[in-house]
Design a protein around this nucleic acid. Structure first.
Lengths: 137, 137
DNA sequence: CTTGAGCCTGTATCAACTACAGACCGTAGA
DNA sequence: TCTACGGTCTGTAGTTGATACAGGCTCAAG
């Protein structure tokens, strides 16, 4: 039957539906990323499809490297679609620049590391290219 | 005369000589990355050029993305050069793979973000390409 | 009726720092 | 000599983004 998944989802169901860690859901609630969900008579959290969509949004944003602070901003724009698209664009563009800077950094690191490893003899020698590369400022 | 910098360095001098944050020096001491330095009669830490070199090594390694745990391993090999170069090479190679994986991830993110931002009109429209891209799982 | 899975809360832990409070010290200039 | 400033010390708390655990409650299947 499984029509439970259409409406009343338990926390573990939300976790499974989104791939989010169980504890992280509660964490997102305490930090205001996810809303306080309605509760059953016994105090159990009860989620629906809107929660699934929102949490997927959050997880996708996290996956793209947005901070929770940035996601809070994006969610505000999602919650109030009367805001301008330009604001969203600005956040995304700033983030894009961050990502590009990180790629540049890592590419430099990658070059240094691969060059260094290539110089390694693998011997039990007293000198070592990796150590030497790290020691030379 | 400034021949103080040749031998007895204060904590702030070590920080300036390496670009390391002042508090981080103390942190590295408590976590065993930097040795407990000798103290003056009044209990002030006293550093020398060997500390500068070691801290530069640590900072360079951090800059290349090695974790403190990995750096501890590298420092062990630096401190005891009788170890094999192959061990160092293994750490560096494992790390190189990490870095390459991170570059691949970020490149994917970069592509998604730049495509998304490009689709943005920047209008005060109720629809927004960034939000839509994030909403579609 | 028992068993296992899930729920609840609060709190602790992690990396790797960073910052602050409150007290002390050391030196250069007036 | 006094004072101001910049530096030092310790311990501890806060940061981000989770993750884990303890101890107790609940629910559904067999």
């Amino acid at each position: 039957m499984d029509n439970r998944s259409v409406t009343a989802l338990r926390r573990v169901d939300l976790a499974r539906a989104t791939g989010c860690n169980l504890e992280t859901i509660r964490y997102y609630e305490t930090v205001g990323i996810m809303p306080d969900p309605p509760r059953t008579a016994k105090g159990y959290r009860s989620y629906d499809d809107a929660h699934v969509r929102r949490l997927k949004f959050v997880m996708r944003s996290r996956d793209l490297g947005f901070s929770l602070e940035e996601i809070r901003g994006l969610l505000g724009l999602v919650d109030d679609r009367s805001q301008t698209c330009a604001q969203v664009q600005a956040v995304a563009e700033a983030h894009l620049e961050d990502v590009q800077a990180k790629i540049a950094d890592l590419t430099r690191i990658e070059r240094v590391l691969s060059e260094t490893v290539a110089r390694c003899t693998g011997d039990a020698a007293p000198e070592c290219a990796v150590i030497d590369a790290l020691l030379e400022a």
